[in-house]
Design a protein around this nucleic acid. Structure first.
Lengths: 237, 237
DNA sequence: GGAGATTACGAGTGATTGCTCGCATTCGTC
DNA sequence: GACGAATGCGAGCAATCACTCGTAATCTCC
C-alpha cells in the first residue's frame, strides 16, 4: 500500500524526531551524527519491518480519523503490535506523524519538480499540467494521510515544521511558473495569483482523493481546467 | 463581534441538541416521558446574555484552536463563567459547536440565496459574482469559526449533520446556476463542474479569512476570476 | 551455546478533560 | 418580604490517552 515502506527514507525515520523539549545546542543535525551523544542503535531487520508496519498503520488511521482523534494505541493495534513496542521506535505521537510528513514532503517536492524546468517556448501550460497532475493525484490517492496531516489545519508542531516550508516552496514554484508564462504580470498580482492557485489546488485535492476510481480522470482534467482557466484570466484583463 | 448574539436563532439553541448516542430501543424508560417531556424552561434575560457570551467565546476559541483542541473549560473561562454554568445552557461540547454551526448554516444559506434568482438574460455571471462574493467573504472574516468547524474535516456528529446538507444545497445551487448559463453542458460534466467549483471555493476561503484587511478586495476579485475562468472553460471546449 | 543487544509485551501511571453535584446567590412574582 | 425558579459556582469524578517500566523472548555474533 504505502510505497515508501521499503526505501532509503526509512533509515533515518527515528534518527532525531525526539525533542519536544528544546535543545539549546546546534539544532540541525538530523542525520549528521553530531558529537557523541547518539549511539547508532543497531537496528535488526525485524525492527525495520516493524517501523514500516507502524508507519503504514499510522497512515491508515490518520487518514481515517485525523491526527487529533488518532490514538497511539489504535496505531499499535492496527500494526499488530503492543503500545510498548511502538514507543521503542518512536519517542512520541508527534514523531510518527513527522516521519510520515517527511516522506510526504519529499515525495511532493519530487512530484512538483517538473514545473521548475518547463520551457515556455516548447511546452504550453496545458501540456505541462496534463502531464504532471496525474502522478500527483495518484500519490495523494495512495497516501490519503498526506492531506489529512497537511491540509487538515491543526497538525502538531513537527508536522507544521515540514508543511509550512513545503507550502512556501510550492507557492514559489507556482509564482515562478506564472512569471515565465506571463512576464508582464505585476509582482503583486503574481503573488496573489500564486496564492489563489495554491489554495484552489489544495481545495480540490480532497475531492480527488475521495472520488471513485472511475471518476478520477475526469476530475483530474477538471482540476487542470480550473487552473488553466484562472491562468487565462490572469493574463488577459 | 458575533452578529448573531442577539436574534431569534438563540431561542432554540438548547432545544434538542442532546443525543450523540443513538437510541434504537426503549432501553431505559426512566427518562422517557415521551409526549410531555419538554418543560419550557423559562429563561431569564441574564441567561440569554450568558448564552450569547458563551457562543461568542466558543467562536473565538474554536477559531483559534479547532474543535478537538478546544476545552469546555477554556470556553467557560473566556466567557468569564464557571464550567458548571456552561453546562447549565449546553448539554455537552457538541451542542456548543452545533449551536454555532446552525447559525452559520442559516447565514450562509441566506448569503447564497441571491444565486437562486439570477436571470441569465439580464445579469452576467461576472456581475452576479462581483455582487455576492463580498458579503460572503465578510461573513467568513467576521466568523472565522465557521470555516474551522465546517472545513476542518473532523467535526463532531451534530456539526456534520448540518454541514453535509449545507454542502449539498450549495452544490445544487452551483449546478443550477451552471445549468442556467450553460444549458448544453452534459449532466455528468455539470455535476463534476459544480463539485470542482465548490471545492475550489472552499479552498480559497481560508486565504481570505487569514489575509490582511487591505488585501481582501484584491483577493475577492481573484476568487471571482478563479470561478469565472473555470466557468469559461466549462462552456467552450 | 553463551553473552549482550534488540525486540516484544501489556498492565500501570500521571495528566488532561468532559462533565456532575451540592450548595449559594439572584431574579421574578405575589 | 417571601417563596420557587433560574442562575452561578468550582471542587471533584470518571474516562481517556500518551507514555513508562519491569520482564521475558529472540536475535546477532563470537
Amino acid at each position: 500500500m504505502l510505497a515508501f515502506v521499503n526505501g532509503p527514507t526509512i533509515g533515518k525515520v527515528t534518527a532525531e524526531t525526539t525533542p519536544p523539549t528544546t535543545e539549546p545546542q546546534p539544532r540541525e543535525p538530523a542525520a549528521v551524527e553530531p558529537a557523541a551523544a547518539e549511539r547508532p542503535r543497531k537496528r535488526q531487520a525485524r525492527g525495520e519491518r516493524r517501523i514500516a508496519q507502524l508507519l503504514d498503520a499510522a497512515g491508515h488511521v490518520f487518514a481515517e480519523s485525523g491526527y487529533a482523534a488518532t490514538t497511539t494505541n489504535a496505531i499499535a493495534a492496527r500494526a499488530g503490535v503492543s503500545p510498548g513496542s511502538l514507543y521503542q521506535y518512536f519517542p512520541n505521537k508527534d514523531a510518527i506523524a513527522a516521519a510520515l510528513a517527511e516522506f510526504y514532503a519529499d515525495s511532493l517536492d519530487e512530484l512538483l519538480a517538473p514545473f521548475a524546468v518547463v520551457d515556455p517556448a516548447a511546452v504550453t501550460l496545458e501540456e505541462a499540467l496534463r502531464v504532471s497532475l496525474g502522478p500527483i493525484v495518484r500519490f495523494h490517492r495512495e497516501n490519503p494521510a498526506c492531506l489529512a496531516l497537511f491540509i487538515g489545519g491543526n497538525a502538531p508542531g513537527h508536522v507544521m515544521d515540514l508543511q509550512a516550508p513545503l507550502m512556501a516552496r510550492t507557492h514559489a514554484r507556482i509564482a515562478a511558473l506564472l512569471a515565465l508564462y506571463a512576464p508582464d504580470l505585476p509582482p503583486t498580482r503574481l503573488e496573489t495569483g500564486a496564492a489563489v492557485t495554491l489554495a484552489a489546488y489544495k481545495g480540490v485535492l480532497p475531492l480527488l482523493v475521495e472520488a471513485d476510481e472511475d471518476q478520477v480522470p475526469a476530475l483530474t482534467r477538471e482540476l487542470g481546467n480550473l487552473l488553466l482557466g484562472y491562468f487565462g484570466r490572469l493574463l488577459q484583463p
